[in-house]
Design a protein around this nucleic acid. Structure first.
Lengths: 214, 214
DNA sequence: TTGAATTAAACAAACGTTTAATTGATTTTT
DNA sequence: AAAAATCAATTAAACGTTTGTTTAATTCAA
């Protein structure tokens, strides 16, 4: 085992993601990770600090890519939106356990530290997406929309299908015990296609609301 | 206290909604409800069956209204979509604790009974909304969209803002300790406006995707 | 030999649930 | 009408686990 500390983090991520923070005991983690119970206190101090360490561990890598997307001058705003959708769907689907934890922990307020970290993460997301959309607006391609709500739509749509595997499999018309890869592939395609179509219509300046046909 | 059993259910709903199922002890519930600890086993059998009873208790009332909306012949599909948005935003915002529980419990699989109940609830929602949208499609007002994904968008957008009060208050530009009513009113307005605008663009047959301006 | 890594064992507290006794009102019997 | 019986409602206490954390001893490499 190369890095025992990291190994514990990954095992804990899996379990927290499946059973929730309160639904997972430190004994569960220790046993699954194949380490002694006391090692968790030894490395992290407490169960709660383990969660905090996990958020730090996973947050770092997420920042770079979106910022890069924004810098790329060669991409049109429309291309950027498509890339954005692909980026988020891929990132969430490839990190389902962690996403589930963030998802659950943003409701529960475990500690001020953790709460602030999660809000910080969300704010950065919002900030990056805001730049992409305002850029499109300045170039007269996108219409005026409620940007924070639009971000909620993107994240919320994805979450609503990562949250309940049973329901999702039902919709995707695959067996509930299907391979994880099959599940992700099917869901990824479906989500990306939907979100792209949705955002094209939502953002396009030519779709600014005229009178409705009755 | 008129109906002690119901009173326990309501208190438990509050606590589960705030702290999660695993984060709430039966002693918490008993103390907050002002009843003896043993009464919870006496009335419900177990903590898990209390949750099940709660889902039954809350599920019943939800069905009627949407079905009625579908029957109403005088409303155009566009009107129905607007009503739909208003119905869902209101219902969720007026039942935040229960919504949070459903939200959390659809990830955790507490028991097969509970899982099935939640899926059943979701399926009924999907079914009702499907009727509204296919109706609009048959009348050549709505274009072809991925209906289950669109439902996910509606529910997910709302959830993404009911899930984390701290973040939402940040976006709504109100203080985090604002009155509950203030929070709901502001969020309701914002969500309804956004979702209506979004769905108008998304569903309108005139917005069927032509080539994008570059 | 020093100090970090690892262990089994123990800790007190909290957990969900059960027990056995008691209350209080309603029904049945005298 | 009074007494007895019945049964659901309620209680304090205890049950056996499980919880997160700590201790003190031991291993192991530097």
């Amino acid at each position: 085992m190369a890095d025992k500390r990291e190994h514990i983090l990954i095992v804990a991520e899996q379990l927290f993601g499946e059973r929730g923070f309160d639904g997972t005991s430190v004994r569960d983690i220790a046993q699954t990770a194949g380490v002694n119970l006391a090692m968790i206190s030894y490395y992290f101090g407490s169960k709660e600090k383990l969660l905090e360490a996990m958020i730090n561990f996973r947050s770092e890598y997420a920042y770079g890519i979106l910022a890069e997307l924004n810098k790329d001058q060669s991409l049109s705003p429309w291309d950027k939106v498509d890339r954005l959708v692909e980026f988020y769907v891929d990132r969430i689907l490839n990190n389902l356990p962690f996403h589930n934890i963030m998802y659950q922990e943003s409701t529960a307020f475990r500690s001020i530290d953790i709460k602030d970290k999660i809000i910080d993460l969300k704010m950065r997301n919002l900030d990056q997406i805001t730049r992409i959309i305002t850029d499109g607006q300045q170039k007269k391609l996108f219409r005026q929309v409620d940007i924070p709500m639009t971000v909620g739509t993107i994240m919320g749509t994805i979450s609503s299908y990562t949250q309940s595997r049973a329901y999702s499999c039902n919709i995707l018309a695959i067996r509930e015990d299907s391979d994880d890869e099959v599940f992700r592939t099917k869901l990824s395609k479906r989500l990306k296609a939907h979100l792209k179509q949705l955002l094209r219509a939502h953002l396009d300046i030519r779709n600014d609301t005229g009178p409705m046909e009755k």
